[in-house]
Each structure stands twice: as structure tokens, then as C-alpha cells.
Design a protein around this nucleic acid. Structure first.
Length: 604
DNA sequence: CTAGGGTTAG
């Protein structure tokens, strides 16, 4: 990892070196004056014949096509230039063939061709994409060997590599070092940092950086805005995203299809279809045609709403507009069928995908999940076994889905067997895998075993999240072990984790069930201060607590408050109210009127 | 010829 980077001026002030302090020691870079001197005669002859030129193109049918070309061009004499190899390598990077590019670089070197800043940056990028950022840094040594000086692109690539590995602090350090080393970051550099901040939930920091960019001599572009708008949309902050959208247009930065995709996705997630369709129209009216991403966003959201036939209709329209559905489209559609329990349709589509050769690991996962959810564990098992015979490798999601299904089908023994096999096949269980097992143990009533597993999770380098806590706190509450539940609840805060609405609902319910209404009420009122707004479930839980303990006045106040906030009573709350307040027409009328115009349970 | 943004599964 880079600790510091600076240009060192000699006493004469004419020659300077760029010095990098790395984990592997100090690397010194000669100045450009030297490198130019050493590399004044590296120009290559370009092969003239048309047949050879054909192989030097940068577009290829597939990986095999590209490799065939490579095998041809390395036989050319004179050899193609490093620039020509760069075009070629870049095409392979586009196909995500990072391993191949690394080994081809070795071949290129062994042919006696010198690297360029471009080719080494491509190489660094490949290591970074393979999560081998330290190997990326070690390539800096090659810059010395070839007498080259890394440039802004090189450093941006490394900063991105650190971001890919979640080392955002290291990325920011390198960014600062790069600046103090005299390398001016450009909009790409800023965008890498902005994107990493957004992806790690630090959208506010990203927005600050966006605002400061201009002063630092680098104006944000459409990519900067897109990254931030996407993060805001994913946090359901559509208004803020739309504000940035108009700010961007005021600066005369034209939105792209990606801008619209981010916004459409955000708006679809809130179920605002009319607004989403309005954006789609606006997009057509502008510099913009929907992409496969647009189609997939629409299809996926419609399917999740259970509107599979609408999704199919949109797909037809899009096909007419020239957007071809891809594996993601079909996966979403398949998931849609699964969600409305049309397993035959899902299976039919899956079979078509398999025979078309496009089914991927996600397709298998969706169908296995569908079978598990519809209690067809034998079908799921069959599919899982079939998968092992194909070239599609099951991943952590596959195993976790199957483990969950087995546990829910009452086969904990088989679930643990699959867990063992996943480890022996080198698939790393993650926090979701362990949470699935934790959930299984809790549902079985093996709370002590669950607690042991949980403690092991905390000790490991897995990041235990709020969901893991929710599962265990819920298990403890249901078993009446409120002391354990409360201890876990406070430990969650100590760990610096943010409880969510589920955590609060669980603990409030637990407290209510034990008759600790005052304490439950305190927690309920404390939610907002902790930045977590109560939802309808929280209201229903606390109201039910008061109703069950015959505290009608408090329940009435809370019902008023809930209705004012636009939430509805659920079936249980309603039953309790009917039972207890048979004569209180006022409150019943209020609940009834509200339930008519909301999604709440249907009452008579 | 090198760096950045959007879609699916647990």
C-alpha cells in the first residue's frame, strides 16, 4: 500500500524523481527527462498487408475469436507495436478476461516488446478487477524497469482498485498523495472516489466532494451526477435526486440514458408507475433511447409487483423498439412467475434458457428459490444436483438459498450437509449464509446453539449486521428470554450498528409480551431520535401491547397518531379493538374509514 | 491503446 508519494527536487532543481513509499519499500521514478532520453527509438513498424490488419481490429466476436487473432499477430514480422497490442488487450478487458490479459502481457514481454504507460495501466486494472490490488501496486516496479513514469490514469486505476476492495480510506490517502505528488486528478479520479463513497453509504460525503470539485479545478460531469443520484434513489431520496437532476441541467450537463435509468429505478421502487412512465416519455423526447437496462428495470419492478403480464407486454414493445431481452430480463420474468407461484411457467422459461445456452448461476438460483418457497424441496434438490453436472458453478447464493429451503422443509441435517459441501467446494459462506443457519437454529428452538454460532460470527472477520441481531433477538423474545434479548439489543448499539424498524418492532413486541409497557413505550419513542422512523408494523405492535394490557387511553392516543401518519391497523389490532371497544364508535369509525382508502387489512 | 455511472438471485 502506498504510504506517501512526492516529487523530490534535486538541489539543481532541474531533475526530479517521483518517490513512492510502499509496503515493499521505496520506489523511485526517474523524471520524464530521463525516460524520454532512454526511449527515443521505440517506434514500431506497422504491418502493411490487409490480411494482417484484419487481425489487429479491436472488435471480436468472442474470446476465442480474440485469442485466434492474438496467435496470428504474434507471428507477424515486424511485430505489432505495443499500441496495437493495447487496443487488443483493451478489447479483452471489455470481455472481462482479466486473467487472460495478464498472461498475454507476459507473452508480449517475452517477445521483447517494451511496455507503455497504457499497457501497464491495463495490466494494473486487470489485477485490481481480480481483487489483487497489491499485485497492481507491484506493477509500479515495472514502470522503473521500462523507464516509464506512471500518470494520472495509472493512479486512478490503483485508486479504483482500492475502492473495489472496499479500502476507501486507502483510496483517499492515495488520492491525496497523488495530488501532493503533483499529479492533477481529473474527473475520472474524482468519479472513482465519488462512486466508492456512494456505494459505501457515504452519499453525504460524496455530495460535499461534488460541491468542492469546481473550486479544485475539476468540473463534475454526467457520471459524477449519475453516481450520486443513483445512491440517493437507492436510499429512496427521490426528491433530493430530482433536485440534483435539475441542478445538473442548469449547468448544461446533458443527462444520459443512465441518468434516466437511475431515476426510473428509484421511482419504480416507490411504486410510482405514472411518474416512471412520465420519465420514460421525457427520455424519448430528449438526446435518448431506452437501453437493455431500462427494459430490465421496468420488467423487474413490474414482476415484483406481481404484474407479470404487464411486464411481458412491455417486453414486446421494447423488442419492437430494437431492445433485445437478455439473461437478466428473463431471470426477472422467471422470478416474477415464481413470486406468483406459477412454477410451471417459470420452469418452462428456465428450460428455454438452458436450451438457448443463456442460463446463468442467477437463473438457477431464482428457480431453486422458487421451488423452495413453493414447498417443492424435491424439485429444488433435483435442480441443484443437475446444476452440479453443468458448467454453471453454484455460488454462495445458490448454497444459501438451498440451505434455507432445506431447513424450512424440516431437514436441518441435510442443510448442514450442504453447508459442509459448500465449504469443501471453496464457496465462502458469508454473513447471510450464517444468518440463515442462525435463523434455522432459532426456529428449531436451539437458542444456545444459535448464541454460540452468533458469538463465533462476532469473533470472525465477517461483519455481523443488524439482520443477524434481529434474528437472534427475535428468537430470544419468542422463547421468553427477555434478559438475553435486551442484552443483545444494547450490544448492537455498542457495536456501532444502526438498528432498523425490524429490530425495534421485535424488541418492542418482546417487551410488551412480558408486560413491560413503559419500557416498550420508551423504546418506541426513542426510535425517532436514533434516526429510525416507526412504520405501520411498529405502531401496530405497540398498540396491540397496550390493548392487550387494557390500557385503552394510551392505545387510543397511539391509534390517532398512527392514522394521522397515514398508517393502517392490521387485522390483529382491529380484532382487539373490536373486542375491547365494542361501544366506542368514534375510534372504530376512524379505523374503518381509514382502512377503506389504504392497503391495510379489510374489515367489516 | 489506459481510469468513472445504470439491471436479476440468498
Amino acid at each position: 500500500m502506498i504510504m506517501s508519494a512526492r516529487r523530490i527536487f534535486t538541489s539543481a532543481g532541474r531533475f526530479f524523481h517521483f518517490q513512492l513509499q510502499t509496503e515493499m519499500g521505496i520506489i523511485q521514478f526517474p523524471s520524464l527527462l530521463f525516460t524520454n532520453y532512454f526511449h527515443s527509438s521505440t517506434s514500431m513498424h506497422v504491418p502493411e498487408d490487409a490480411k494482417s490488419q484484419r487481425f489487429l481490429r479491436s472488435k471480436f466476436k468472442d474470446v476465442d475469436d480474440a485469442l485466434a487473432s492474438f496467435n496470428h499477430i504474434i507471428l507477424m514480422r515486424p511485430l505489432p507495436s505495443i499500441a496495437q497490442f493495447c487496443r487488443f488487450l483493451s478489447a479483452l478487458v471489455g470481455m472481462k478476461q482479466y486473467h487472460t490479459v495478464i498472461s498475454l502481457c507476459r507473452t508480449i514481454e517475452s517477445l521483447g516488446i517494451s511496455h507503455s504507460v497504457y499497457s501497464l495501466s491495463i495490466l494494473i486494472n486487470c489485477f485490481c478487477r481480480l481483487h489483487l490490488v497489491n499485485f497492481g501496486f507491484s506493477i509500479l516496479g515495472k514502470f522503473i524497469k521500462f523507464g516509464l513514469e506512471p500518470n494520472t490514469v495509472t493512479f486512478t486505476t490503483l485508486i479504483n482498485g482500492l475502492c473495489i476492495d472496499g479500502k476507501i480510506n486507502g483510496a483517499v490517502d492515495l488520492f491525496n498523495d497523488m495530488v501532493s505528488g503533483g499529479y492533477q486528478p481529473n474527473v475520472h479520479t474524482y468519479n472513482v472516489i465519488v462512486n466508492a463513497l456512494c456505494k459505501s453509504g457515504k452519499t453525504n460525503v460524496a455530495i460535499k466532494l461534488l460541491k468542492g470539485m469546481g473550486e479544485r479545478g475539476c468540473e463534475p460531469d454526467v457520471v459524477t451526477y449519475n453516481a450520486i443520484m443513483d445512491a440517493l434513489c437507492k436510499d429512496k431520496l427521490i426528491i433530493e435526486a430530482l433536485n440534483l437532476f435539475s441542478q445538473m441541467r442548469n449547468k448544461c450537463i446533458s443527462p444520459s440514458v443512465i441518468t434516466y435509468n437511475c431515476l426510473i429505478q428509484g421511482i419504480c421502487n416507490l411504486g410510482k408507475w405514472n411518474q416512471a412512465l412520465a420519465l420514460l416519455k421525457e427520455m424519448a423526447g430528449q438526446n435518448i433511447s431506452p437501453s437493455i437496462f431500462t427494459l430490465n428495470i421496468l420488467i423487474d419492478n413490474l414482476c415484483k409487483e406481481g404484474l407479470v403480464s404487464k411486464a411481458q407486454a412491455i417486453m414486446k414493445i421494447m423488442i419492437q423498439k430494437g431492445v433485445k431481452p437478455d439473461v437478466v430480463t428473463y431471470n426477472s420474468l422467471m422470478d416474477g412467475f415464481c413470486l406468483c407461484n406459477q412454477m410451471d411457467e417459470a420452469t418452462k422459461l428456465f428450460d428455454q434458457m438452458v436450451s438457448g445456452g443463456i442460463a446463468n448461476v442467477c437463473s438457477y438460483n431464482i428457480l431453486i428459490n422458487g421451488y423452495c418457497k413453493s414447498r417443492k424441496i424435491d424439485e429444488a434438490t433435483k435442480l441443484f444436483d443437475e446444476m452440479l453436472k453443468t458448467s454453471v458453478v453454484p455460488n454462495t447464493v445458490t448454497y444459501t438459498t438451498f440451505i434455507k429451503g432445506l431447513w424450512e422443509a424440516g431437514r436441518p441435517g441435510n442443510a448442514l450437509e450442504v453447508f459442509k459441501s459448500m465449504c469443501s467446494y471453496g464457496q465462502q459462506p458469508n454473513v447471510i449464509t450464517f444468518s440463515t443457519i442462525l435463523n434455522g437454529l432459532c426456529k428449531q428452538g436451539n437458542l444456545d446453539e444459535a448464541l454460540t454460532l452468533f458469538k463465533a460470527m462476532e469473533k470472525s472477520r465477517l461483519k455481523v449486521n443488524c439482520v443477524s441481531y434481529n434474528i437472534l433477538i427475535n428468537g430470544m423474545c419468542r422463547a421468553g428470554r427477555l434478559t438475553d434479548a435486551k442484552e443483545l439489543f444494547s450490544r448492537l448499539f455498542e457495536k456501532g450498528l444502526q438498528p432498523d424498524v425490524y429490530t425495534y418492532s421485535i424488541i418492542i413486541k418482546g417487551l410488551c409480551n412480558e408486560g413491560l409497557l413503559d419500557e416498550a413505550y420508551k423504546v418506541f419513542r426513542g426510535m425517532e431520535e436514533c434516526g429510525c422512523l416507526p412504520n405501520d408494523c411498529c405502531y401496530n405492535v405497540i398498540i396491540q401491547g397496550f390493548l392487550r394490557h387494557k390500557d385503552i387511553p394510551e392505545a387510543t392516543l397511539l391509534i390517532d397518531e398512527m392514522v394521522d401518519k397515514g398508517f393502517s391497523a392490521d387485522a390483529t389490532t382491529f380484532e382487539l379493538v373490536i373486542h375491547l371497544l365494542r361501544n366506542d364508535d368514534l375510534i372504530l369509525t376512524k379505523l374503518r374509514n381509514h382502512s377503506k382508502c389504504s392497503k391495510g387489512a379489510n374489515f367489516k
